[in-house]
Design a binder for these strands. Structure first.
Lengths: 249, 249
DNA sequence: CGCAGCCTTGAAGTAAATCAAGGATTGTGG
DNA sequence: CCACAATCCTTGATTTACTTCAAGGCTGCG
């Protein structure tokens, strides 16, 4: 993710980004964009749509490792780690920009400050991974869903894609199950519980957080790890005026 | 982690590292070195001993997020993400070097190639996180332990701290449970199963992988994500002759 | 010796998986 | 517009994996 939440990406960084972007492609929904073991010579910038990364187990059951929103730099890690150690796929129709590693390297050597921003974006990914480990390791069914919905709401709200208590999340219950490490049958039952308790509804890709405080409590959600608050991090640069809304899917 | 596995760290990088290291301290076993929410102005290089990162849940139950071995750069992410979003503690007595952020920043601006190596080290951490998500989300009790032991064996073997099938791992069953997202009672039972099946023993901090192939199969362990093979990544530099064994705990 | 920390085991309870069937919703072609 | 398939969701019954509670044993140490 390169997405800086409520803090806009500075204009000169946008210029730099634009310069290194190569071909722009569209990808249909539910397509694998990079498969585990593949050797990459470029990274992918997600312009519009949703993507996710995953690992399949021995019997083909899938664990989703992370979700990517518009504005995320999806696989920057392939710059040093050439071979994909997991797979990458689209959730919806997507527009992506192919960014050749050569171009990234050239820019990095020319502008060390920019390389730090790319680094930051991968560190924010890592912070999400840590929280996902916590979610799977310590929370039970309903709590996992609550935590995931809180996190995703916060991330989407940070890029103006969520209202106070509602947002669009183009995934199925089966995806939700693969995110939270449970069967889709169980995900369905837990969603029913949350619905019956008047805490949250999730129908046809629309999440309605009816009782937000209850969700936060349930999921033990503390948004600090998202580092959305400018004060929580150092951006290696002064924050220039807001100029946002470059992308809409 | 900065640890490069079987590929030694080049001499000039060692020099660079040495230059930015500040005060060297010792830390007793089981001490919290950085607590969640704390604002950091330095990073920590682990010279000897084992450390771990963790998040506690509401009722104080702990989830371990990662283990750190001698030679790891433990909290490089605090350079851009000033506030700790999780906690850090020692497992054993440790020797650590305090590395002021100011010194790291200066070096980075002076040597862009070195900053890429620091970046790489955090990307290897992220690869481990992803695999931990998979382990917790898709594997059952015995498989989780098997996977963890395989991973840890591979990491320790890469720094010459493991023989073909045995290694020292200074943790308790309770730690193991906190790593694998289960109760210590259950961890004890699963260890018994593995012992009875003649697959693995773990007693007083010594792991004996009696049947390594069985463990790999059980844990669905594919070591690619560790990127130990030089061919799997680009180190941004030619690999100079091996000079290793700087640290022993 | 006696205590503390760590590990083990049993019995009972609970959360989640599995198996299986049927219902709803969306899209497709006639 | 309707028939039909495909996908997704729901629900029930049963089984399994794991937790919880509780007691006792082992090991190392002052």
């Amino acid at each position: 993710m390169l997405n800086r939440g409520r803090n806009a990406i500075p204009q000169d960084d946008l210029d730099a980004l634009e310069r290194i972007m190569g071909q722009v492609r569209t990808v249909a929904a539910r397509e694998v964009v990079g498969a585990i073991g593949e050797r990459m010579d470029h990274s992918t910038f997600l312009i519009s749509g949703f993507m996710y990364r995953f690992l399949d187990d021995h019997s083909g059951e899938r664990q989703i490792l992370g979700l990517h929103l518009p504005g995320d730099f999806v696989d920057l890690h392939t710059l040093p780690l050439k071979k994909l150690d997991h797979s990458l796929a689209s959730l919806t129709d997507c527009t992506i920009a192919i960014v050749p590693h050569r171009a990234v390297m050239a820019l990095i050597l020319e502008r060390p400050d920019f390389s730090l921003k790319l680094w930051l974006s991968t560190l924010l990914d890592a912070a999400l991974y840590r929280e996902w480990i916590f979610r799977l390791g310590r929370l039970a069914g309903a709590e996992r869903l609550a935590h995931f919905f809180c996190e995703t709401h916060a991330r989407l709200a940070a890029v103006n894609r969520a209202s106070a208590n509602e947002f669009a999340l183009p995934i199925s219950q089966a995806d939700l199950a693969q995110i939270c490490g449970m069967t889709n049958v169980h995900a369905s039952r837990v969603l029913r519980e949350l619905r019956d308790a008047n805490v949250l509804t999730f129908r046809r890709g629309i999440v309605n957080m009816i009782d937000y405080p209850a969700l936060m409590r349930l999921g033990e959600f503390q948004p600090g790890y998202l580092h959305l608050d400018k004060d929580f991090r150092s951006d290696f640069s002064a924050a220039p005026p807001a100029l946002r809304q470059q992308q809409r899917s």
